[in-house]
């Protein structure tokens, strides 16, 4: 007796694997400049940001694909994109 398979996906962290390895640049937070506005956390298309108890962003490098949207959106230039494999 076959068991029915459904074409469904459940929300879960990284159900497609650790997508962080797709990345060649990574965002680095410059804590001194950060105003804790949370825009990076909102804009991240991969939910690869968390906020710490004080409201500062933490990048989840296992899932961050390095798209740079956070750096682009940061209103105070507190996120710098750094080459993953270069001197940076």
């Amino acid at each position: 007796m076959p068991e029915v398979m459904y074409p469904i996906a459940k929300p879960a962290p990284g159900s497609a694997g650790k997508t962080g390895y797709w990345r060649w640049q990574k965002p680095v937070i410059i804590r001194e400049k950060c105003t804790r506005c949370g825009l990076c956390w909102i804009y991240c298309p991969d939910s690869a940001y968390e906020l710490d108890e004080e409201g500062y962003p933490i990048v989840l490098y296992d899932w961050c694909k390095g798209c740079g949207i956070c750096a682009h959106e940061c209103p105070v230039d507190a996120i710098k994109m750094v080459d993953e494999y270069g001197e940076g």
Partner: peptide, 8 residues
């Protein structure tokens, strides 16, 4: 919650 028909 699930999504139906996502890219597999």
């Amino acid at each position: 919650p699930v999504s139906v028909g996502n890219l597999p």
